[in-house]
Structures are given as C-alpha cells and as structure tokens.
Write a protein that binds this DNA or RNA. Structure first.
Lengths: 225, 225
DNA sequence: CGATCAATTGATGTATTTCAACGGGGGTGG
DNA sequence: CCACCCCCGTTGAAATACATCAATTGATCG
C-alpha cells in the first residue's frame, strides 16, 4: 500500500483477488512478528495478501529506515529485481498469503491469466509508487498524515455508526518511517487533527474519521480548511 | 533514472540495450522541448532511451511538481497502469528512442525475449524506486545532491583528465523537484560542495567531481569528514 | 545593447527535528 | 493478583535545516 493521490479518477486500483485456477489450498498463514523474507534473499515466490498486514522495510547502514510499503489485503509483495528481494518483509498482523511462483510472473508458462495479472500488479505498483514520490517529496506533515489516513480509510476503513473507523496496527515509528517524518511529528500531527475535530483517537491503534471532507482537503493542502 | 543507493553490490543495473530482433529502423528522434506523452494519455508504446535525456513529471493541482525520473540512455519509459500514462514526459536533450509496442510487454506474443526484457525492466524500475524512497524520505539536502551526482557520474559521467565530468542538462528547479528540495537549496548545496573542494562547477550545466570518495561519503551521510 | 530568465546569494521565517521528560498500558515475575 | 518495569506514545522546549522572500548577478537572445 502506497499513499496515492486521492482523486476521483484514479479511484480504487483493482484490489482484486487474482482470479485464476490457482488452488486455494496453498495459502500460507503467518504470525505477527515473523519475517516473510529479507533483503538479498533470492525470490522464489510472490505473495498476495489475503488477510492481515505486512511491513516492507529498507535499512540504511547508519540505522535510518524507510518503510517502503505496508502490505494490505489485495496487495502483492515480493517483486524480484535481479532475482533478489530488495526489502525486508515482516508481519504486523497475522496474515494469510496466497503464494505464486516467481516463474508465474517471469516466464508465465502454464497460466497466462495469472502471468498477466501479476504483470498488471507490477505495473500498478510503479504507478502507485510515483504518487508516493509526490507525497514524500512535496507534502507537509499534515498533508502526509491526512493522505495516509484517507488512503487507509478508503481501503480498509470500517463503518462505525456514521463515521469511519481506521485500524493502525503499526507503531508510530512505522508511520513516521513510511511518510518520511519522526515519531514525534506523527504524534503531534495526530493530536492536531484530533483537536481540530477532523478525527478522533479512540485508542493508540484506532482512529475514527469525523470529517472526511476536511481530511481530504488537508491531504490536498487546501489550507483554507 | 532514480537515485539508487550507491553500493558496490547493487552496482550498475543492466543499462543494457535490449538486444532483440527488433529492427533499428523504427528509431524515433525527438527534439528538446517536445513532449513524448502526457498524463492520462493511453499507452501505445514504451520507449527505450538510446541517446538524449527525458524528463518525467507529475503535477499537483496547486502547482507543486515532482520530477519522477530523468530518462537517460538505457532507461525505459512509459510503463502503463490501467493502460494510461501516469506522468508527463518531455525532452530535455534531443533524443533517440527505440519504441516497443505496449503489447510486447503486456501480451508478449511475438517476441518472448523482448517481452522478458521489458518485464525485467519494469521490475528493476520497482527496485530502483524503492531506493529513491529512502532518498526522498530520509536524506538531507547534501546527501541528496551528493547521491544524485554520484549516480550521474557513474552512469553518464565522462572522464576528463583525471576527474569525472557530469553534464546537467536540466535546470536547478528540475533537480529540486526531483530531490524534494527548492532551487535555492540546490544552488546553495552545489556551492557548498564546490567550496569544500568536492566538485568544481565548470559552468551552469557542467560540474566536475574532484574527490569522488568524498562525494560518496557525503551521499551516505558520513559526517565525519 | 537592453530585455528576459535562470542561478546565485543574502536575510529572515518556520516547519520539523532533536533532545528530554513524563505518563500510560501491557506483560512478567514475584 | 499485584507491583514493577519497560516500551511506546505524548508533550514540551530548544535547535536547525530548509523554505521563503527579496535582491543581485550572470547568461542568452533578439
């Protein structure tokens, strides 16, 4: 999951379960805290997230970290480059994964539909990452947080009465490393959004969106509230 | 071209001319200032840059801009998502392009080798963009500029005596929008690098790397110098 | 040669980081 | 079962990197 530009045009990229002849039997279950793969590992499988949440990270020698993406249901993780993984990937929330052979993407012999679906997923990935560039490079802290919450609300928010509830299984530091901020700034920005009545923080891992339009405006940088 | 992490392992991703049966006759020539495609255009062709430099940009409603990438020889541009282009692309330096049908990537009928090469290019793209995330989200201005110059020196630098000459055909504002900075900061950072003897600015569009190791250290954030 | 636009440099402002202290929630061990 | 502890999140105060605003220089072109 990347922070794409909220726009009614680019709406909802196909979070489709890849429909294919693949047998459901091979589904993999992983517990929180466990690692799916490490940077440098050879890629044998790609995975589509069915349930749960993954975290893809990249580390700098001096300890600085970038959370590349969160893996939410529908996302496909593990695209190889030079046959290798280029991030670490671990599990934030117990997850169910549908594995696909790397060869299904790269050679595609066997199941053309699957091959095509994986290819399209890779291409969507590129596009989504481009949006994410814009966010990392050009947006302020509030805009980043608002954008992040918008995307989450849209993708995995759950209706609760008339407001939308968002679960944040990751830690503040993960959000920070995802958005290019510090934990302190993430925290401050959340309280700021809370105090301005845009969201409510029900507990550390749950926020509710009280004024969706306001949140969207903030994500776009409309400072005219 | 993205700002990848300079590492002796990840060295030089295959900037290979796609070797295939494709006839050279179809090469396209484009003059500087001209546009190759716009955001929203349907994708019919992908292009491998043979000579020249392209600029891929994405615009925000309020005018903020992100330069997604520069297209240097070896790079492939125009990966579709949902069949559409998601950036604008125009020409910085007169360019020669080798076009490939979108179908060569997506259906691959006809030329399996070409299909595979384009797919691998897309996958490298994802990996390179992940490195770029790290740069945008976690690096300081000096680190960004140093990284940028390192990558350029490595990819398109030309030996000049014992130092390496880099051509910067783009404007300062382009570099800024690429690295998530302002033109002023780009300018100041360049003079800072110049005054510290790491580079020499021969003219607005040409810098020479005087101390490559120092530049590399700076790009990594080694502040002990 | 003057006009124009980009790049540089300076002065000032500010958003975010950094450093530091505090508090709360959850788990563990006594 | 309670107490303690540890980690994480929050909040505050101070520092700073970068942006913003503004003026000057420098290049390019008719």
């Amino acid at each position: 999951m990347y922070v794409t530009i909220p726009s009614d045009i680019t709406r909802h990229r196909p979070v489709s379960p890849i429909t294919t002849t693949a047998p459901k039997s091979h589904e993999t279950h992983l517990k929180a805290e466990s690692y799916l793969y490490f940077e440098g590992d050879p890629v044998d499988w790609l995975y589509q997230v069915k349930t749960g949440v993954l975290r893809l990270t990249r580390l700098l020698e001096d300890g600085r970290r970038q959370v590349i993406a969160f893996g939410y249901p529908g996302d496909i993780v593990g695209f190889p480059s030079g046959g290798l993984h280029h991030t670490d990937c671990d599990v934030l929330v117990d997850a169910t994964l549908q594995p696909y052979r790397r060869s299904a993407l790269e050679s595609g012999e066997g199941d053309p539909a699957l091959h095509s679906a994986l290819l399209q997923a890779a291409l969507s990935e590129i596009s989504a990452m481009q949006d994410h560039f814009m966010m990392l490079g050009r947006k302020s802290a509030v805009e980043k947080m608002a954008s992040f919450l918008c995307v989450l609300a849209d993708r995995v928010g759950e209706d609760q009465g008339d407001q939308r509830r968002i679960d944040l299984p990751m830690r503040r530091g993960d959000i920070a490393d995802f958005l290019g901020l510090t934990t302190e700034t993430v925290s401050r920005t959340l309280t700021q959004l809370r105090k301005s009545g845009v969201i409510a923080v029900q507990n550390i891992h749950t926020v509710a969106v009280l004024r969706p339009e306001a949140l969207l405006h903030l994500s776009r940088g409309s400072h005219d509230n």
